[in-house]
Amino acid sequence: MSFESIAVLQEPYLSWLLQGLSLTFALFIFSWTIAFVLGFLLLLMRMSPIKVIAWIPAAYIELARNIPLLVQIMFWYFAVPMLLPDFLQKALNRWDSGFILAGLALGFCMAAYFSESFRSGVRSINNTQVEASRALGFSFLRTMQYIVFPQALRATIPLIMNNTLLLFKNTSIAMAIGVHELMYQVLSINNDTFRTFEIFFVATIVYLFFSILIMIAGEFAERWAKKSRRASNA
């Protein structure tokens, strides 16, 4: 099967695919940024000494993690605009509302997973580490900078990479509300050409390629984390 003989890789389908892929990327980057920032904010709130403020992110994380992503996307797409004031609804419709709402849904949902990863990173640090550092005369901030943060990062990065993979794969669910990302385009090409096997094969390879990139990055991150943890134990 030479490259040219794959009908679904001829025009116009190649453009369809590439458009889908670029929208998948856009969705991925958009929602990843939300997930990362919001996840961090949730963590900060959760570490708050004020019970009520700590309780809010905890409850949100349970909600986000115990409701199917598709349902969350549907809620954002079908229900949330109804709750918005008129001018925002109009603004949404002027832009690509499906893309924005799917991105928000993905980002908000994955923020819960990201936040849990951050938290397990922080919790992996033994309190004696902080005590030892303070006993040496490091200030609280220096302790965070030299002792807590580097260790937490090591424990967190592999988990974040795993969440990143999950997020990347989940961008495909946006097709359910008509976002023209890769999976949507694949189904369109299939409807147009009926070359199901070919187009599914191509799409699977494309998805796998990027997933494997993320997994390899995760593998390296894990090795790096293990190595530096060993070094710090020695």
Partner: peptide, 15 residues
């Protein structure tokens, strides 16, 4: 394991 972990579940459903 790695093919399944690297492919979106929707793709598996369509397959």
């Amino acid at each position: 394991v790695y093919v399944m972990r690297g492919t979106p579940f929707l793709m598996i459903i369509f397959w």
